[in-house]
Design a binder for these strands. Structure first.
Ligand SMILES: Nc1nc2c(ncn2[C@H]2C[C@H](O)[C@@H](COP(=O)(O)OP(=O)(O)OP(=O)(O)O)O2)c(=O)[nH]1
Ligand SMILES: [Mg+2]
Ligand SMILES: [Mg+2]
Ligand SMILES: [Zn+2]
Length: 569
DNA sequence: GCCGTTTTCGGCCCGACTGTTTTCAGTCG
């Protein structure tokens, strides 16, 4: 996709300019970095924005960058980028991935020692020439070598679902450290990003014991190595290569520190710039008017001091939430307690690990009113999709189960394949027997699937489109679809779009949820559980939906059962 | 480079930690 290609180009242009080191480029570099981030999560292709003359409306895209984007779409390349690339060794990009190496050092290594790659860097350390450079010595050299060893695991981003346990374990261990009173997750984890680069933990405690607290952290058994460690901040790497940053503040600074440490960086910079423009200052230590600290205890206080509505962590991306907060236009977002049931789950009838009864009881424990058992359809043989014959048997079991169950209703459902031609894997006379029909694409991920899905939505018995983009984070890219067409069709046909809570899916993507809302689409936040335990992924799904600015009224499974039945087409 | 927060021109966040420094630059959060 052109958006992602351009994001990469602007990031690389920024790195080249950083390397070249002209101080007057400082803010041009930032403009490129910012626009790269923006384009990465734009809900529309830049080609379309250009075609409709809306490119300049995007925040961060002005005359210069717009011209470059247009040039790229027209010629397939950007001249300035090509020139810049030719001006520097190819290896500088890999040098930027080495921890402790930044633009200044890379430039010096290049100019003074001709170092233009990681291989050359290693040589310069081995023959001692690097250590002789001004400002560098043996310790810096060793840090670089150490950095090289672990740079892969440190630059890697992991799916948020894969660090749940590590976060819990780490917090529990830290809470036992003498002097610590409170530990909470911050950073991308708290914002519920789909991947995290590290784990950021904020602690408050007795600052007189900060040395002891930091030692306690460094000495935890899961710590493999210590990157930096001071009185208020320590970074370590765990035995499985995960970086954990601990920030320690006094209890009365907890709010401002949490605000700082939750980010995003872009959100922080924007807030601090506003504070500064008003002659005040925002930092992790508080909100200051002159010398006087006027807020710091809670995040709420800090936002209020800026005359802003409280901004939930999931929205802190600097993509308009600050302007909304200034107008007090942040909606009340969906919460876990609003969820009344789950409309996508699997049992042993197809590829689930538990019986329908086990699933039902687990759902009942979560306080749900309903659970749809949506086993796979006949076409999906690898997942033991149900033949018409087996469907009948399943229905019998389900009816009997519903007689037994007191508090929860099991809905007769299917996750039915959308076949390559857009037809549905069960005939209409079967489909109409289901309470819940989730229709999903499970094949041909390398083609444009817009028409398939559009056609599926035309079917009057299809209630929900499952995992609309088909992506698996870190494993499979989303297939091509024209989201505008999908959103229009969903709104017109009353077809609900799924927000799939599986942590490798998180599908729809957050920025598309926000866009789909503008088209008045409705959503179903589904766990897509294959086990009783993963029903609890609903919590992640809700946080993900919040990133897309979802409110209770946008979510069909926040409705009580009778209202849900009426709301579905 | 961008943008309208103070200002369509002149700003663009603020602080911790390290190593090598003799007073701070570089990197990172
Ligand atoms: N004000 C300010 N805050 C920053 C800056 N860099 C990082 N922070 C804050 C906001 C971040 O969310 C928080 C944690 O930093 P991280 O580098 O871990 O980033 P984050 O967790 O957001 O993303 P990640 O998944 O770790 O890449 O620290 C900065 O340059 N300025
Ligand atoms: Mg982080
Ligand atoms: Mg961090
Ligand atoms: Zn599926």
């Amino acid at each position: 996709m052109v958006n992602q290609e351009l994001a990469k180009i602007f990031n690389q242009m920024a790195e080249i300019l950083e390397f070249l080191g002209d101080p007057s480029d400082r803010f041009r570099i930032r403009a490129y970095q910012n626009v790269a981030l923006t384009i990465e999560s734009l809900p529309e292709s830049v080609e379309k924005l250009v075609a409709e003359d809306r490119l300049r409306k995007v925040k961060g895209i002005g005359q210069g960058i717009a011209a470059k984007i247009e040039e790229y779409i027209e010629n397939g390349e950007i001249e300035e980028y090509e020139l810049l690339k030719r001006a520097v060794p190819k290896g500088i990009f890999e040098l930027f991935t080495v921890p402790t190496l930044g633009p200044k050092r890379i430039k010096m290594l290049h100019d003074q020692l001709g170092v233009g790659s990681i291989a050359a860097l290693k040589k310069a350390i081995a023959d001692g020439s690097l250590q002789k450079l001004p400002g560098l010595g043996e310790k810096s050299a060793q840090k670089m070598l150490e950095g090289l060893e672990i740079s892969n695991s440190l630059t890697e981003r992991r799916s948020i679902g894969t660090v749940f346990l590590a976060v819990k374990t780490m917090i529990a261990a830290l809470e036992k450290c003498e002097g610590i009173s409170r530990v909470v997750p911050a950073g991308s984890f708290r914002r519920a990003e789909e991947t995290v680069g590290d784990i950021d933990l904020l602690a408050s405690g007795d600052m007189n014991k900060s040395k002891k607290i930091m030692k306690c952290f460094r000495d935890l058994p899961l710590v493999e190595r210590v990157l930096v460690s001071g009185e208020t901040k320590t970074s370590i790497v765990t035995k499985d290569g995960l970086q954990v940053d601990l920030r320690l503040v006094a209890p009365d600074e907890f709010g401002s520190a949490l605000q700082y440490f939750t980010g995003s960086k872009q959100h922080n910079v924007a807030l601090r710039t506003i504070a500064k423009a008003r002659g005040m200052k925002l930092s992790e230590y508080g909100f200051f008017k002159g010398e006087k600290r006027v807020a710091s205890k809670t995040e709420e206080e800090c936002y209020a001091s800026l005359n802003m509505q409280y901004i939930p962590p999931e929205l802190r991306t600097n993509t308009g939430e600050i302007q909304a907060a200034q107008k007090h236009a942040i909606p009340k977002l969906i919460e876990l307690k609003d969820i009344r049931g789950d409309l996508h789950s699997h049992s042993k009838w197809s590829d689930g690990a538990n019986t329908m009864e086990e699933m039902a009881l687990a759902a009942e424990k979560l306080g749900y009113e309903y659970l749809a058992m949506t086993d796979h359809s006949q076409n999906l043989r690898v997942a033991r999709g149900l033949s018409l014959e087996r469907l009948k048997e399943k229905k019998k079991e389900l009816d009997a189960l519903n007689k037994k169950l007191k508090k929860i209703t099991i809905l007769f459902g299917t996750e039915v394949d959308i076949l390559p031609d857009g037809s549905i894997d069960y005939p209409d006379n079967i489909l109409k027997e289901f309470d819940i029909v989730v229709a999903s694409v499970h094949s041909r991920f390398n083609q444009d699937n817009t028409e398939r899905i559009i056609k599926a939505m035309q079917n009057p018995y299809v209630h929900i489109i499952g995992h609309p983009s088909g992506r698996l984070i870190g494993r499979r890219k989303p297939y091509q679809i024209d989201y505008e067409k999908i959103f229009k069709q969903a709104a017109n046909t009353g077809t609900v779009l799924e927000i799939n809570s599986q942590y490798l899916r998180l599908d729809l993507q957050d920025f598309y949820i926000r866009e789909a809302k503008r088209w008045k689409c409705k959503f179903s936040i589904d766990s897509d559980s294959h086990t009783t335990a993963s029903l609890e992924l609903m919590e992640l799904g809700v946080r993900w939906a919040r990133r897309g600015w979802c409110e209770k009224k946008d979510v069909v499974n926040a409705l009580e059962l009778e209202k849900l039945r009426k709301a579905l087409k």
